[in-house]
Nucleic acid binder design. Structure first.
Length: 133
RNA sequence: GUUGCAGGCCGCGCUAUCGUGGUUCCGGCCUUGCCGGAGCCAAGGAAAGUCCGGACAGCACAGAGCAGCGCACCACCUAACGGGUGGGUCUUCCGGAAACACCGGAAGAACAGAGAGUGCCACAGAAAAUAACCGCCCCUCCAGUCUCAAUGCGGCUGGCGGAGCAAGGGUGAAAACGGGAGGUAAGAGCUCCCGGGGUCAGCCUGCAAAGGCUGGCUCGGGCAAACCUUGCGCGCUGAAAUGCCAAAUAGGCCCUGCUAUCUGUUCCUCAGGAACAGUCAUGGGCUGCUCGUUCAUGGCCCGGUACGUUCCGGCUUAUGCGGAGCCAUCCGGGCGGCAGGGCGGGUAGGCAGAUAGAUCCCGGCAGCGAUGCCGGGACCAGAUAAAUGAUAGCGAUCCGCCACCGGCGGAUACAGAAUCCGGCUUACAGGCCUGCAGCUGCU
RNA sequence: GGCCCCGUAGUACAAUGGAUAGUACAUGAGUCUCCGGAACUCAGGAUCCGCGUUCGAUUCGCGGCGGGGUCA
């Protein structure tokens, strides 16, 4: 079966309560210009097998005052995540774990797509390393 | 042709690959739902600022006044507006040789009231608002002086006092209708001529604002984006409004069922009670069923009674009879507990509100126009931690460089729906159209 | 998605519509000192931007820009 680079609603972190929990209790690390809040736990629900991670993206309005700029960055982040998520998904399935996380862009400059892709790759690698320990 | 100003309009295109939201249809999975496939649709002229006005919703509401807020030449348009259209008035600029005025053109205007009241007008200046400092002029008195022999009269100069006047006065943003003549002691719209303003009356034009003509009265500044006065308008709150459905958990109310018995051991104030273990019953979990296993509960009070037992009574062959008391594992009731079911409030969450409308396009008619009416056609985002995208190639336009066709490099703005609509304001690469003005070329 | 408030030197604050926009700290120069500090003297430095009202605007009006607060 060929790999499909989709990004469905079930792969997004949509519950307000879960997001607030992430900020209040979740762990975090930084990989400039990205900052990640995450919460990892064993699989309890069946649909976590199909989509072992729920993610949300954010760009604060401090450095990007215009909504079009924030939209552009979020779309780049989403595109990079969509194209690179499968390795992480396989790993999580293998470990039997589920992940809630939020990726925030904290830079001041408008990034290019290549930069975002490299940073996203690094963030996913780091996520795996944290789970290894 | 070019430059400037004003107004209006457009505001990158195509292809490929991988994706996103909505919707219609088809198929699959065990149903809600999810997944797959196909088709269609998917940001703006400002979606922005949130400055006005409405629609819609909830609450409030006898009428009137006050307060507060807003608006302010007139008429019209509109669902409404602080918006728009047309007209008027004023100001500025340009032209007509030409100050004022008049005529033509362009641009602009928060354009009611300062002859209701209060207040303010720095500096300068005599004075900044019921004018009178210097002045001007007249009169009385006094002094000096000239003419004269002297006084007086008269002339000139100066002073005190009284009366009149507002021409002139370095200022200032602004100075008490402007120019000319008459008049007067000096003067003054005091009078006259020309001109300007205000106001009232009449007539004409106009729906009106207003304009024209005639006549009367009149001529002491500015500031209301100072307080204010007058006229008109305005309930408050806003989609996080509002309505509906509603899991789990906790709590409330109602109904139903159960709340047992025996054995063993130990202890005690041995009638009786307590603890532990087992048995049993009910309910739940472990798997859909059986078995098995495991967990929870089986507590208390009141009334009655049997057996038993204590006391009393007399009788008697009798451990039999009668009365009183105690007590159940029996009966009835209550509280509590457990389990199941139901009801109502309501949280998470979901649905409606919410996308077909003061809509868009084309044509015709009415109107100077804003706009309205009629006919035909179209369906044009509906998300909700929030979609409308990413990458590559080709093309289009513009800019720069090399500069011969051409090539190379760069740029393509401002900006992202959040209930909807009408305006206003602000931002904007580049391009198109129309009008006006200047310059220049050709016929 | 609404609503409210505020912008003055580098910083914290003043200023009826009327000057040369003031005070303190900070900055710079000088005096003093062997040097520095303190003290004293002097200087530079600002009304967020634009348009309007007014003779005149930090102040009044309108429009932008920026900052802060608040409502679930």
């Amino acid at each position: 079966m060929p790999v499909r680079y989709t990004f469905k609603k079930a792969e997004r972190l949509k519950k307000r309560r879960l997001i607030e929990q992430l900020f209040a209790q979740g762990r975090s690390f930084s990989h400039p210009p990205l900052r990640v809040y995450y919460s990892i736990h064993p699989v309890t629900d069946q649909h976590h097998v199909a989509y072992p991670a729920q993610v949300a993206f954010a760009v604060p309005g401090k450095y990007f005052r215009k909504a079009t700029q924030r939209n552009r960055i979020k779309r780049l982040l989403r595109e990079a995540y969509r194209l690179q998520k499968h390795e992480l998904y396989d790993y999580l399935r293998q470990q039997g774990m589920a992940l809630h996380w939020m990726i925030i862009y904290q830079g001041k400059e408008m990034p290019t797509f290549e930069e975002i892709q490299q940073k996203m790759q690094a963030v996913m690698l780091r996520m795996r390393q944290i789970q290894e320990k």
